[in-house]
Design a binder for these strands. Structure first.
Length: 586
RNA sequence: GCGCCUAUAGCUCAACCGGAUAGAGCAACGGCCUUCUAAGCCGUAGGUUGCAGGUUCGAGUCCUGCUGGGCGCGCCA
């Protein structure tokens, strides 16, 4: 309908151009909005306000000329000029009721868009280091990424969801060594556990798996393990040097093969656990992309060579640097250390190169807010590799600040004192957690009160929407008790009998769904969908309380059933996109 | 010190890429179940959109400065 009105206005503008009221070279962006106030009709445009200056006349005068030039339309019953020069359109009853039949025939396809034109978009999100279970902070990124991905798919994009597994590097070594030390403990060795090691209980669980698979074959005496290792912090030493010393000892005593066995058990256990956790949360990936595969497959080398050949790499102090300052970054970035090891950033370069090589039209990074400092260097990489910047998109997801009541919860992965995503899901439920996470704008800081979220009650807005859905189902279930059944054709034929504001509001809301979906997808803003569903549910609850569906009058009854079913369908479609279930009864 | 994000009702958050009287929920107060699920509905109250300027027909939205909060600035990952 908005498109239709925009066409009418476009036609009027063309007419005015011919009459030389408007300059011929004008190509205005015609904006048609839903009105907030019923007195302003159903749709409004501010076009006269925007074109007043180029036309050289007062907004209201121009509005009048535009209205005079508007073509006739069966869909429009009245056009007003209001306020400073808005043009308000009143839609015909048939135009408004048409959406009900459309929803009922398209069902779960209603609202899907082809705006993405099957463009291939790669979405990377969560990508937390596989050094422990996900905590509630990761949950927001997971829910946001999954919903944005699903919205993009619904908008006609070919979406490839990806989790980048940081399975290389020092943190993983610390993890593997922590597991091995716990394994030694359980085999009777005693020593002070390194202060910088991973201390969560899950480390012992993994150690038990090492035990089950290798029994005592990987046991070494504690005295040998700690021989020559720098002192730990509590003993007046340096905790970093201490843990690095232990890692070196683990590699030396176990040999490359033995060390990798422990390492791989730890990695696969935690990565698999994360995959299960996210899977239960309704968050699925097309691909779990291994960082190690970039190093081992020569991708890092290839990407760095490409940058070197293009003259973006230089050597200094025995290390190699990427000249990211040439593309607006604060400082140049090291890619190969003086000891010959490539940096984490070198892997990032290779990964981006790899993404582009795979032919994605768009590459979307969803980061936690603490990674915002990476944007300039990643944009630099994109340009240095010779790809246009508009292929790249970033969204930062702000942290959820945790509270227990009014008290702030401090979190640290290393110390093991975090609230896990799994704990949250167990206590709040997947539906409430998914909904809560995406109901705020992603770049907005979010206060997450655990006590409130765990309260399992009315405070969780998701129930409000689910209840509306369940109510619509409930009415349908009641039909047989009265000896009735739903006659859809009769209902659709009688829609014009639904002339209350309650019913009209509902139909207008239903008609908005496709544009809400499209806008959410293109702007990566799932919270707008959450908001929309709350509004739709609210309209439905109001209508439900004001008007009885199961009337004796068969025409009205079937018409209201048709409307109710259409609302139910749209609620179900929207909830599905948010990863929230749509229960038939509560 | 430099950079990014942010500031809207007592609390948690919206406001459709500059539009009409800034909206919901929770908390507070008052009504509505012998009628389709009261996890609901209706009503009342609550605001100088952090502060000060600027841009224009028009600013919560855009620009500048200031203040408060979050985060980031390694040959770490």
């Amino acid at each position: 309908m908005k498109e239709h009105i925009a066409e009418l206005i476009g036609s009027a503008i063309d007419t005015l151009k011919q009459q030389e009221v408007l300059p011929a070279d004008l190509t205005p962006r015609i904006m048609v909005e839903n009105t907030k106030d019923k007195a302003h009709g159903d749709f409004a445009t501010n076009i006269a306000l925007m074109l007043a200056k180029p036309a050289g006349c007062a907004p209201r005068d121009l509005a009048q000329k535009l209205v005079d030039a508007l073509p006739e339309s069966q869909n429009v019953t009245q056009v007003d000029i209001a306020g400073p020069g808005f043009i308000n359109f009143f839609a015909s009853a048939a135009t408004i009721t048409a959406v009900v039949g459309k929803v009922l025939s398209e069902k779960d396809q209603y609202g899907l868009s082809q705006v993405g034109q099957k463009q291939k978009i790669q979405v990377e999100f969560v990508s937390a280091n596989p050094t422990g279970p996900l905590h509630v902070g990761h949950g927001r990124g997971a829910a946001y990424g999954a919903t944005v991905s699903d919205l993009l798919a619904a908008a006609g994009f070919d979406v490839h969801r990806e989790y980048y597994v940081n399975d290389a590097g020092r943190q993983m070594d610390i993890l593997a060594t922590s597991v091995w030390l716990r394994y030694l403990e359980s085999n009777g060795e005693s020593f002070d556990f390194p202060s910088n090691g991973y201390k969560g209980d899950y480390i012992r669980d993994i150690a038990a798996k090492v035990q089950a698979q290798f029994e005592t074959s990987l046991v070494k005496a504690a005295a040998d393990v700690f021989a020559g290792v720098p002192a730990d912090e509590p003993q007046g030493g340096d905790k970093e040097a201490h843990i690095d010393g232990l890692i070196a000892q683990a590699k030396a005593l176990l040999g490359a093969e033995g060390y990798e066995q422990v390492f791989d058990i730890a990695l696969e256990d935690i990565r698999g656990d994360i995959e299960n956790d996210l899977g239960e949360f309704g968050v699925k990936y097309e691909e779990w992309f291994s960082e190690r595969s970039l190093t081992r497959g020569g991708d890092v080398e290839t990407a760095l060579k490409k940058l070197t050949d293009a003259g973006h790499i230089y050597e200094e102090n025995g290390a190699q640097w990427f000249r990211s300052t040439a593309f607006g970054d604060d400082k140049d970035r090291c890619v190969v250390r003086d000891n010959g090891m490539t940096t984490y950033f070198a892997s990032d370069i290779a990964y981006m190169h790899n993404k582009f090589e795979r032919g994605f039209d768009k590459v979307l990074y969803l980061f936690g807010a603490d990674h915002h400092g990476y944007l300039p260097r990643l944009k630099a990489v994109c340009q240095a590799l010779g790809y246009p910047l508009d292929k790249l998109d970033f969204r930062l997801v702000q942290f959820a600040i945790l509270y227990r009541g009014s008290e702030r919860v401090q979190m640290s992965t290393r110390s093991g004192s975090f609230v896990t995503l799994r704990e949250l899901r167990d206590e709040v439920g997947n539906d409430a957690a998914r909904f809560f996470y995406v109901s705020r704008k992603s770049d907005q800081h979010m206060g997450f009160d655990l006590d409130l979220a765990k309260s399992q009650s009315k405070d969780n807005p998701v129930y409000y929407i689910q209840y509306a859905h369940a109510r619509a189902c409930s009415v349908m279930r009641k039909l047989p008790e009265h000896g009735w059944s739903f006659d859809q054709a009769a209902g659709l034929a009688a829609l014009e009998k639904l002339d209350s504001d309650y019913e009209k509001d509902l139909m207008v809301a239903l008609a908005r769904y496709p544009e809400v979906l499209e806008s959410c997808a293109l702007n990566y803003e799932p919270h707008v969908m959450a908001q929309y569903l709350k509004d739709l549910a609210s309209d439905f609850h109001s209508c439900y309380n004001a008007l009885k569906v199961l009337e004796d009058d068969a025409q009205i009854r079937n018409a209201r059933l048709a409307l109710g079913e259409a609302v139910r369908q749209v609620l179900a479609n929207g909830l599905q996109l948010l990863g929230v279930s749509a229960p038939e009864e509560m």
